[in-house]
Write a protein that binds this DNA or RNA. Structure first.
Lengths: 222, 222
DNA sequence: CTGAAACTGACAGCAGCCTGACAGGCGCAA
DNA sequence: TTGCGCCTGTCAGGCTGCTGTCAGTTTCAG
């Protein structure tokens, strides 16, 4: 579960980050809409926590532009203004929930969990790719009806490839999905994970081709 | 079984809470309709116990708005007024039961159990999972016809797993079910309870698998 | 053919989980 | 009140298995 907090108040951001870290959930932080857009452009997040009152472009504009691009990522709005209008328009714009400052961290965490659960609980989370069936809610895969034991890293990698079929993924793309900013990684770690994933999926119709010097490309062979 | 009590009388709320905690059922408390709405928006409850005479927006309004949203959660109304009119209109609005203050805690608990049993729909609250039979109304379990002695915490955990077969439950999910907001918990407490539950169910066909780094998954092995 | 990139088996560190032992808290009985 | 038993959370030690590193090998483009 990867979350991005967009908040210009450094003290609040730090405290929030610390709280979530203690819960075991890494939280990336962006101080402005511009910074957030940069993070979003080369990284996938599962959830955004978005302050409305930001210097420069407001949180609304970010939310609006995300939704107009068809991005459905769950967004939780933080607002200092308690007016109902604010809340209504936030939800109208496509926010999934809101919280009025000052708030209790426990409530924020509970709401995040609720959003993620809603996301996870969605039906039709099972998708078929040739003889490979992947279930996103249980994070499990079957090949020819036989369950395949995937480790967390392999699962992350598989999800990434399934979301990007027939598209080249560079090692950097992959690293950005598997590791947070401050986690160091070596290209070899990715290669190793890929080897393990390929071994698990050796009988499946999902083929992960190496494109030497560029990256990898997954496609379904049928 | 997670319940929310909406009651402005602090002393009564505390006493009720204590009573249910002793029975092994976490009970969250909201002092006003606004607070209740906040709790309801980000957490799932199995039952509401709702005082009608609340400062500000009344319990009726909350009930009405819940039902108009199509929310079917069982609601038990508490009322200090003994008038029949009150009761009738509460039931009209979609309350499932009512109780006139002052009341006996044992009666409240019995009515809550009855509501939850009705909710589940099946007349016999006994369900079979392979060689494991669980009776929800007596909160007792049998494996191969032999009764299994379960402690309150273990029972809560078992119920949670039975309601979520073949679905991953994270430690957070579990914590949210076993503990109220303000109760601190450590992951280890859950692990310990799980160890104890597994030991009790070692001969049963209910398997609780650990999914390292993610959570737990229960399924019936037959 | 050559060098760089990618693959992969072996291994070690470590985080997550399990579990036995213990202690605090509570209810109950004397 | 004291003593006892039960429940449940904490602690610490141990174990498992995941994951990154290393090093040797293979592959491939030029």
């Amino acid at each position: 579960m990867r979350m991005l907090l967009i908040e210009d108040n450094v003290a609040l951001a730090d405290a929030t980050r610390e709280y979530f870290l203690n819960l075991g959930h890494p939280l990336d932080w962006a101080g402005s809409v511009e910074q957030a857009e940069r993070s979003l452009s080369f990284d996938d997040f599962d959830l955004l926590i978005l302050d409305i009152n930001l210097p420069g472009r407001s949180g609304y504009q970010l939310l609006q532009s995300l939704r107009s691009q068809g991005n459905k990522i769950p967004v939780l709005i933080l607002t200092a203004r308690a007016e109902v209008d604010d809340r209504v328009s936030a939800l109208d714009l496509g926010a999934d929930d809101y919280l009025v400052k000052p708030f209790d961290f426990r409530e924020l965490a509970a709401r995040c969990r609720a959003l993620l659960r809603r996301e996870r609980g969605d039906a039709s989370s099972e998708t078929q790719y040739g003889n490979l069936v992947y279930n996103q809610s249980t994070q499990s895969a079957c090949v020819n009806g036989q369950p395949v034991e995937l480790r967390p890293r392999e699962t992350q990698l598989l999800e990434l490839f399934l979301k990007n079929l027939d598209r080249i993924l560079t090692k950097d793309d992959i690293a950005n999905r598997l590791y947070t900013f401050d986690q160091a990684y070596t290209p070899n770690a990715i290669e190793q994970t890929l080897t393990r994933l390929r071994k698990q999926l050796s009988d499946s119709s999902l083929i992960i081709k190496t494109i030497r010097g560029l990256g990898y490309l997954a496609h379904v062979n049928d």
